[in-house]
Amino acid sequence: MRGDMCDRIANLLPEYEAGSLSEGDRAKVAAHLERCDACRWEAAALRRTGELLSQTEPRRPTHDLWPGVAAQLSERQTRRAWRVPFGPARRAWSVVAAALMLVILVAGLVVHPPGCRVPVAAPQLVAAADAEAGQYARWHAEASMTGGLADSCALALLVSTGKPVPEEPKTQ
């Protein structure tokens, strides 16, 4: 009667017949075959099948199948790529790219904090001719001339009109 042991041995029989089992498994299978007629019969059947197969000539395909197989594989890979976009390598690069973008964003926020360049609509200022405008500009230039780092030469040019100094000279 076939038991669990026979089922396990049956799974190992193809490799046993092919000679690819490890020493331990091989000894175990051999010991079981000595005791079990059913398994020995199955092993003999497998051996005969193998012998029979080895005698037959491999049948060659009538035409080259590889292009069709390759096309199917390629199509499957493409579909797989769409379905699972983050393969291990791509996932790593994506993380690196995301990290870089975040660093750039943070750096941008540090260098130019938000709110510094908020565009505001320029209010309407109506340019108007005014004979006194030059006077205010000159007064302002006079007041600005002695400020630190002021371009006193440009301001002096702005103040100068070629007219004599109106104020009274006062000896110090």
Partner: peptide, 29 residues
């Protein structure tokens, strides 16, 4: 007497501030 200038005299009040000069600094009246 000088164009539209009314520096020392009363004139028509401006409805809104007007830019009268733009050089190194803006002047608004």
């Amino acid at each position: 007497g000088q164009g539209q200038g009314r520096g020392c005299q009363a004139g028509t009040p401006d409805r809104q501030p007007v830019l009268i000069d733009q050089g190194p600094a803006k002047t608004v009246r």
